[in-house]
Design a protein around this nucleic acid. Sequence first.
DNA 1: GCGGCCGATGTGACCGTGCACATATCGGTG
DNA 2: CACCGATATGTGCACGGTCACATCGGCCGC
Lengths: 345, 345
Amino acid sequence: MTELSGAADSASPPRAPNIRDVAKAAGVSHQTVSRVLNDHPSIREATKERVLQVMEQLQYRPNRAARTLVTSKSRTIGILAATSASHYGPASSIGAIQDAAREAGYYVSTANMHNTETSGIQDALNHLVSQSVEGIVVIAPQKRVFDVISELQVSVPYVTMQSSSDSPHTVSVDQRGGARLATRHLIERGHRMIYHLAGPQDWIEAEERMAGFLEEMSAQDIPTTAPILGDWSADFGYRAGRELLRFRDFTAIFSSNDQMALGLIHAIRDEGLDCPRDVSIVGFDDIPEAAHFWPPLTTVRQDFTELGRRCVAQLLGNISEPEVVNIEGITAELVVRGSTAGPSF
Amino acid sequence: MTELSGAADSASPPRAPNIRDVAKAAGVSHQTVSRVLNDHPSIREATKERVLQVMEQLQYRPNRAARTLVTSKSRTIGILAATSASHYGPASSIGAIQDAAREAGYYVSTANMHNTETSGIQDALNHLVSQSVEGIVVIAPQKRVFDVISELQVSVPYVTMQSSSDSPHTVSVDQRGGARLATRHLIERGHRMIYHLAGPQDWIEAEERMAGFLEEMSAQDIPTTAPILGDWSADFGYRAGRELLRFRDFTAIFSSNDQMALGLIHAIRDEGLDCPRDVSIVGFDDIPEAAHFWPPLTTVRQDFTELGRRCVAQLLGNISEPEVVNIEGITAELVVRGSTAGPSF
DNA sequence: GCGGCCGATGTGACCGTGCACATATCGGTG
DNA sequence: CACCGATATGTGCACGGTCACATCGGCCGC
């Protein structure tokens, strides 16, 4: 642990002004000042103005700690994030969460899980709880996280995003439906031998996409092989692609995200083959770069920003018309580009 | 503004235990409990153990607001981020900042700027200051941010990252050196007509990279054209590429980041040309996907994670050997891949 | 044997704010 | 003009920690 050095520039007075200082200067009681701060209705306009003026003059800033102490409301929500938070999707959602929270007058504090061990989750969770956050958005929808949260008996409301599990604490894109769209697209193009490159086993969203894939395949009576479990990275996609292409027993691959799809395309090319001529590829997420891949990637778009906003809305119990809320609210959308075509044989 | 609903599960008792509750249960004074919390040296081992046990039993959690109130140390640092925070680089750094801060016992709160207007910066800054953060990391190195910070007379220490300006509040990768490496690489391959696709005008790092480009060109006595100012996005890279290629008066482009480079390559292909045969491209950042682009992208790698760590270290005044610190500490590294070759004519 | 010192612990005040309650002020009413 | 209720403002206390200082033994040295 280390200490933060003193203020940067100004040789500030030893103590910042508080409401009593303001009160004295304005010739009112501290309570009146407090009322001004909290927009209390029964306060005379003239008084209010005078107080506000003094505040301005004294550079008064309310002390959040004091307020939190007495109200026991921290006005802070926490984000529990996986290391994957540097990816486009999660990062976008986090941004949206922060914005939505701020708009609602809340602060946001973030903690990353260092690993997917129970201890890593616990540490991060403790870190958040210890600042008495009023709610938590879990953005690392790994199954284990649920267990840890319930095991710890966290007494804080929480929401997880991007999963479609049976938990009530969930805001999600319809991952399963999106995966079915992607799969159906390949089938409609005539593919019958389709692989699925899935995300990590313990990610709920990976599981949902896999489930969607299997559902659609089975609905169309097409036999499937076991999905490959990846780690979301382009590197993994490349290695998996090289491996798979040793036996060319497929004509299309549905990848669980765009990065892995990019790796697959790379592998296809390095094997002297062509996408989409020899192998069609569909991704998932529609990251902004996907349209500029070669070939431009057919993928499933999800609205990460909306997702983040909804998380906060749900956490704050502020969804405009609660009865109408569609739990699977945000639908995914297929974006067809150049990486898919009919099979060449 | 909305209120957060009550605790999720447990019908918790009206009040959480405080140090006096613990003290009573352990048969000591509240101050002794406080000493245990703060690892005070002169406390008997037996007493300490007893207190700790009671804490465990009562599920005691120290109240951060109370501690902050009395010590006036919030143990929180703020991150002031641009919307670009969803990009790989900034997101990685933010993750590293959060981890480093937590390791040092600090909490992290993040605020995004909604726009680059003064008001947007001010709002975000106020949001951070109002929670009495002890320090701020600015991760949106736009020049205007500096102005606003100094104008507001923010009395909080701050550090900005990814700029190499003359400000003392800076931790940076050697952007300029990296840009020179990239440019020199193109020159060494024989290119003489080289364009630069820069980042937004008001970004310090964009400026630095541009400066590096111009420096190297001038050092080698090669005439330059005015750089194009982009917005970091692949989309812009694509549009700029299409535009530029109407006059093929160049054989190479140095792009200020990898995303725009991707868009350029896409444009080159759409014009029926080939990268690197007709045009060589160099990017900047080395995002994880760059190795899997087609062609794999020659680019300049910077260590975002280390950057984030150093920001926190600097902010906490914890750099191990202050005298030895190299302000330009983190060097950038050229990664040569397939997108560069000699000019074809 | 006694003063002094040190380690271990206790006592009370205080940090800045909001809440419950008390009090003043004012206009209208019978 | 006494009385009522509503509006506007003031008074003390509580929140849960930490800090400064007081207290209390025991041990040491002369």
